[in-house]
Amino acid sequence: MITSIFSKSKSINFIIVFFITFLAFIIARVELINKPITLVVVLKQTMLILVCYASILLLSFIVSKNNLTLKNNYEILFFSLFLLLITQTTSNTEIILSNFFILLGLRRIMSLRSQKRVKNKLFDAAFWIAIASLFYFWAILFFALILISLILYTDNKLRHWIIPFLGVVTIFVLSISASIIIYDSFFEIFNLPPKVSYDFSNYNSIKFLVAITLLLSFGVWSSIFYLQNIKKKKKAFRASFKIIIVSAVIAFFIVIQAPEKNGSEFLFIFAPIVIIITNYVEVIQEKWFKEVFLSLLIIVPFITLLL
């Protein structure tokens, strides 16, 4: 039954996904009920939910444009369910914005496959990732995706290796200019030095343990089959699939490095992991097992709401 609903791309699927996302968004803001509701608060929360929706649409575009999955909507369904699994991922403004710009950068990186307007795409990718790092410093680790993509596409042109750094320098110069105007200081806008924390005690709750176990178990298991099946993909698309697995690894390191481990940092890992899991779901032959697999992914996020 579940497979029949989301096995094909339909408008109703987006309505369901947007509803689940809205539910996660509202649950994460229960504490706002006892606070005065002002126009500024309403506008800010409206902006954030729209960015969440835009991220889902952008993820769907990246997947369909690069044939990362078959023509279905599993990836956006899983994305919304993971937002519900860890509702804190919808509560941090900086991370929501940073993740959106990372997706914009990923979109440009993926488009390198066509080998057209390469210089523009490299600059744009670095530009978006640099902006993402202004909101959340450790997002800068995704810059490595650009360099890895150049290796995967065997690009030996020196100017192509220099252009991404120019994109970062551009944002750096603009940020310094803004910092001087706003704060009368060169580097105040960067919130330096970057903070790191390896204190995982915040994860020591039933809800977080269930959520992390689900993400790790399903993610690692799906990754095994994902890596095995890359060779079966069309040669032109193999680099794109490799970029996704690398982005998942980078996102994992961001979670490890996160200075405040409140759950919101897991948002970075959702986009690559849902693509990986979707690819696994698509190769499951036993219908009953696929239904059980999907049922767990759907039911567990709702169960965690009761924990």
Results as ranks from 00 to 15, higher is better:
Phe135Glu: 07
Val210Ser: 06
Val30Glu: 01
Met110Asp: 00
Ile176Arg: 14
Lys234Gly: 12
Ser179Pro: 12
Ala236Cys: 12
Asp124Arg: 12
Ala54Thr: 09
Arg117His: 14
Ser295Lys: 09
Ser177His: 14
Trp288Arg: 15
Leu305Ser: 02
Ile206Asn: 15
Phe218Thr: 15
Ala178His: 14
Ser4Thr: 15
Ile27Tyr: 07
Lys261Gly: 06
Tyr53Gln: 06
Phe200Gln: 13
Val42Thr: 05
Leu77Val: 01
Ser114Ala: 08
Tyr183Thr: 00
Asn34Gly: 08
Ala248Leu: 11
Ser98Lys: 02
Lys116Ala: 00
Lys231Gln: 13
Lys65Ala: 06
Trp221Ile: 09
Gly167Gln: 04
Lys287Ala: 12
Gly105Leu: 00
Arg108Ala: 06
Lys119Trp: 10
Phe241Leu: 05
Leu112Trp: 03
Ala24Pro: 13
Ile275Leu: 04
Leu83Asp: 00
Ile95Asp: 03
Leu192Asp: 14
Ser149Thr: 14
Thr90Ile: 01
Leu306Gly: 04
Thr38Ala: 01
Ile254Gly: 01
Phe78Gln: 02
Leu84Arg: 00
Leu158Cys: 05
Val63Ala: 08
Ile146His: 11
Val220Asp: 10
Leu306Tyr: 13
Leu122Pro: 14
Leu48Ala: 04
Ser4Asn: 15
Phe78Ala: 03
Leu70Asn: 15
Leu112Ser: 03
Ser149Ala: 13
Leu106Ala: 10
Trp221Pro: 11
Phe22Cys: 07
Ala126Ile: 00
Ile95Gly: 06
Leu59Ala: 02
Lys242Trp: 04
Glu75Gly: 01
Ile243Val: 07
Ala211His: 01
Pro164Cys: 09
Ser205Phe: 07
Pro301Thr: 00
Glu265Leu: 04
Lys233Tyr: 09
Leu58Ala: 03
Gln285Leu: 14
Arg107Leu: 02
Ile298Trp: 07
Ile5Ala: 08
Asn279Cys: 04
Asn34Glu: 06
Leu112Gly: 03
Val118Phe: 03
Phe190Thr: 06
Leu48Met: 11
Ile275Gly: 08
Tyr74Met: 01
Ser55Ala: 03
Asn279Lys: 11
Val292Phe: 10
Phe253Met: 04
Phe82Arg: 08
Glu260Lys: 11
Pro301Leu: 01
Phe25Tyr: 07
Tyr226His: 08
Ser205His: 07
Phe123Arg: 08
Phe143Asn: 12
Trp161Ser: 02
Arg159Val: 13
Ile62Met: 09
Lys35Cys: 03
Val300Ala: 01
Val255Cys: 13
Ile176Pro: 15
Arg29Cys: 05
Lys10Cys: 09
Gln115Asn: 10
Leu112Ala: 03
Ile16Gln: 03
Leu174Asn: 11
Ser240Trp: 05
Phe79Gly: 11
Ile189Val: 04
Gln228Phe: 14
Phe142Pro: 13
Leu103Ser: 04
Phe14Leu: 14
Phe186Thr: 15
Thr154Pro: 14
Arg238Leu: 02
Leu81Trp: 04
Ile244Cys: 01
Ile212Pro: 10
Met1Trp: 07
Leu141Trp: 11
Lys71Tyr: 09
Leu134Trp: 11
Leu104Phe: 08
Phe270Trp: 06
Thr170Gln: 08
Asn279Asp: 05
Asn204Arg: 07
Lys195Ala: 05
Phe137Ser: 10
Cys52Ser: 11
Pro194Gln: 04
Phe6Asp: 02
Ala248Trp: 12
Val220Phe: 14
Leu296Ile: 10
Thr46Cys: 15
Ile56Trp: 03
Ile256Phe: 04
Ile224Trp: 01
Leu112Arg: 04
Lys235Ile: 07
Phe22Ser: 09
Leu147Gly: 15
